[in-house]
Amino acid sequence: MTLTEWLGTALVIAGVPFLLSGTLGLLRFPDVYTRLHALAKGDNVGLGLICVGLGIQSGSVTVALKLLLIWVLMLIASATGAGLIARTALARGLKPWGL
């Protein structure tokens, strides 16, 4: 195995705990807003690390860029989605926990 493959695999492995922590937050946090915090941040860094790792591993620039594009699309979707859910929740009178 070459150095780049090691690096790629390491990054992919590094991404997994972030995805898991997002799920953990989803299960443990007390209300919609805090769960949104956990998901939006954890999942995107996790997916980002996995994409970068896979891109390094694939050894092809076009594949790496396409992975990056998919990540950016997921970023757009989840940042907008998180904002939409949070704003609608507040507008509907869902009170944040602990306030």
């Binding site: 939006a40 941040k41 904002g83 949070a86």
Partner: peptide
């Protein structure tokens, strides 16, 4: 939208 991905913030 950006701050939803940033540490500790969520635009409501």
């Amino acid at each position: 939208n950006l701050i939803n991905l940033m540490p500790g913030t969520l635009c409501v």
